[in-house]
Design a protein around this nucleic acid. Structure first.
Lengths: 171, 171
DNA sequence: GGCATCTGGTTCAAGTTTTAAACAATAACT
DNA sequence: AGTTATTGTTTAAAACTTGAACCAGATGCC
């Protein structure tokens, strides 16, 4: 098949996206590095845990929501554990499993740094979007996610949280 | 000031964005690594050069459009040069400067791999957006970029290309 | 001109991530 | 029981990024 090139409009949109995402990730990383001593991804780990029931999540679930490899997550959690923000426990009903738990210290770190982070996100993104655009953004991004892993696997979003794996086996 | 937290809608949009961008960058990186042996950023360097007049750009200009540090770019270009895809020349009218030039080999690499890359982008992003959404995406992203570097510096987009620095000094 | 300052770009040292592949333990299926 | 699939970690290597320091050349100012 001959290539379906991008139209000029798509081209512009794509480049705008590339620039914005590079800049955004960079900004968040730098900011969080200063405020919390953590890169953005690591902060996200804490954030996810903080909202999970009981502040605990299976490694695989965590990796799935964050869309990163388990290997990468292992490294991240190892560091967060060294920092005292996270603790690992064994999963009781699946002896292979391990569970990441947000410690009080981790929660404190999060509470201390969240306002600054949110403020950054707000200024960078939401302060100049109207409600319609917010909705569009969600739609567009959800679509991308679905397209990229719609092949077989089902998309897992943070809202699915009270977890598949977390709950004890049904019988 | 008390923190202006994200509304539920904003929260959802933000998370959708985090997931999508992580997944997207990951996919593009992997794909390009296979097809071209290059990470996405490096591919973008070649792409930008390919469209610049004469296929050449000042390092700083390149860094600015790609929103990366000069240091990072130096490293990238060094590798691309080793691969033979880019060559560096001295800037004639500013003896401090250096200019990255896309070689024929680099151009060939780009032409060989562009169709696959574009196809990936299309399937991941544009195949499920209508024209209105494409426009919204550009608007939103442009807004983010402006917000993040609106502080003093002016935003440089690829369309500004026939460059400030490229043209010879005016007098 | 001469001095201070700024820019463009690279280099250095260091560390951080990242990855892929291999592995051990356990679960699940047949 | 035996095979296959998952979970999570480890390992070894490489790739990348960063920030600071630095040089050479440009610019501005007196």
């Amino acid at each position: 098949m001959t290539t379906r090139w991008l139209s000029p409009e798509e081209q512009r949109a794509w480049r705008a996206y590339i620039a914005a995402s590079a800049l955004l990730e960079d900004t968040l990383d730098r900011r969080l590095q200063q405020e919390a001593g953590l890169p953005h991804l690591y902060y996200s780990v804490l954030a996810m845990l903080s909202e999970a029931p009981d502040r605990r999540l299976r490694m695989t679930d965590l990796a799935e929501v964050l869309k990163i490899t388990r290997s990468r997550l292992t490294y991240a959690v190892a560091r967060l554990e060294k920092d005292g923000a996270v603790r690992r426990e064994d999963c009781e009903w699946d002896k292979r499993g391990s569970v990441a738990v947000l410690t009080d210290e981790g929660m404190a770190l999060l509470e201390r740094t969240a306002p600054g982070h949110v403020e950054t996100v707000r200024r960078a993104v939401f302060d100049h979007l109207d409600p319609g655009q917010v909705e569009q953004l969600e739609r567009i991004c959800t679509g991308i996610t679905k397209a990229l892993q719609g092949d077989g696997t089902e998309t897992v979003t943070p809202d699915d949280l009270p977890w598949r794996r977390r709950s004890c086996p049904s019988s």
